[in-house]
Design a protein around this nucleic acid. Sequence first.
DNA 1: GCCAACGTTGGC
DNA 2: GCCAACGTTGGC
Length: 661
Amino acid sequence: MSEGLVDNLGSGRGPGEEDMEINGEVLKPTNDLLIEKEERTEVGDNGMERTSQVLSPLEALAPSDSLDIQDHATSVPVMTGHGQTEKIPGGVAEEQPVDWFEPLEDDNYEDDTQGDAEEESVAGSERSGSVKRVTVEEGWEDWPALGKGWKRKAVVRRSGSSVGQSDVYYMSPSNERVRSRVELSKVLADTLDMTMFDYKAGVFRGVGQPKPLQSSLKDRGDRADSPDSNHRLTPLSRSSMGTPSKDLQHTTPPRPNSSLAKISSPSVAHDVEGMKQNATKLPLSPASSVSVSINGMWIPCGNCRACLTTEDCGSCANCKKTLNPDTKKLVRCRKRKCLCPILKNSTPQYSDPEDFSVNVDIEDDDEEKRKRRSCGICEACNSRTDCGTCDFCIDKPKFGGSNKKRQKCRLRQCQRQAMRHLLPFQLGQTDFGSQEGWVQLGRPRPHFTYSRKTTPKKRKTPHLEVDMEFTDDEDEPLQEEEDYRYMETVSTAMWRWHNRERQPIITFQFQTTGRTSGIDQEHELLKLLKSLHSSALPTLWFAIMVEGPTLQLLQCSKLSHMVDTTVQIDPSFYYQICVQGQPLLLTHPLYEAHPSCLTSVPQVANLLLDLEKYNVCQGVPTKEQPFSQAPIIIERASTCDFLVLKETEHCARCKALSCSY
DNA sequence: GCCAACGTTGGC
DNA sequence: GCCAACGTTGGC
């Protein structure tokens, strides 16, 4: 704070003080001209201690759309309309006229801590000069600066390493959420020139329009926030205000009763960080607890018996939870949980309303958290390239998506740690094949999957399925769950295979459950693989070794009808034909026409040649409802042959099913 | 129980 | 400042 200003503070503008005239412009004593600022505590003439806020010159230039007084503390403008400081009487609050304190009508002044506790939502804690109209829900404010129907919300991060940081979101009239300037520019590209738009403050940095003082003052503040703000300050104003400080650069306009404004201040941000760091030093003192009172949180009152208890009981569930090394989350002893906590405007999304202790999740080991998400070892974790084709990629803005799913590319989901429904369909899509010739069982599957009517239980035993349906809808998770289960099995087998020196016995679990094979069988299987590689197989059929171990034959040509068909030979040389991931029924003529074991290249080649004579049964569409917009559902008979000779489209069973419609 | 939606936070 | 994406929530 400049010396000059400090000097000015003493002069004290008293009640009824005349309007200021600065460079011919009259400053009305309205809160529009007031700027929340540094707090001061002084002893008044009556001996009463009073808290006030004074404005620093630099801060007067700080971006502020509101330029409102905070609480009922007093602030005074000190800038002239041309950036010059002025000796201003009345720098200290002292029973100002009511019109200086317009917001006092809904006076919620308390001490600083209590004030925080009852402040309005952080969301929407900034505003333009227009009348604020906070929507009832979710803290969205109407934001006419962007046009009719636009809304804006500012949210302060409640936890994590970036606690206290604020994020600003906008919502278009069509409820399209915008998270960044880039997104906003895209949305408004055709309607507004966003080059001068201050995203964070939500205002256009317009120039050249004649404005009343308070507008020009406001604009000066706005400009101070812009990247080139410094050179816009007149030398006089800069010299009279001292060296520009970071205050000049803060991007969040203060506003009345704004916890955001408080959190944005270095001291309070420090408090928030300190709270996180010191959370283990429970109990929080009343002062410390309120210093981090962020909107929408349960906070301890600081005064009740529980709050005043300083030692953990050591025996309650929470104490035990804290002691449990597997439970990293720090929670307060139940006997020290506030008996009368203060609920702020809204409950934070992730807070536990039962847990008044900290309200900021304390993961004392972020590394642990990361490990839960990714092993960091698998190919998927180390992949940096999005496939651009999976549903999660397609959702991404960079691929033209609407950013609704916001998930990592499926091929980059950790093989071990990711949530099941996020896992890639198959191991091989993560390029496991690049290592030691290993690839996945099967191949990337077509997009249609089984409908919800097919329960996981049924799918476990596909041969026994009844009423199995086949659709082209997007029901991936069920299929993925099956894939996951299967993957767990093959992953284990794969590990054993890689460690076969120590784990000579491999149990192969698949359709031929129960059969075991020793190292000799595996060796024989590898010999067959080598033979197949050195032989001419039917066009574009290729043999690979996959987890199990299993020798898998697949058709590499997408033009072939057998593109979704594989032959899997286990170490005992029994084989299984799979179509789109589903095992062919053992009653299929193909099995009858070939030996039960494929032990030689000719046997394999013959089977593949035979396979090329087949098509995949197309299934039958369910009966369409007239004028229905619903997608057409393709069904298959429960005993569908899957593979039908090329001259036919449907197997007999599916054809019979179609006749029933 | 599943999953779309999205609030939120980490990282660059 | 912006994007990526984790993990919760609420609708179904």
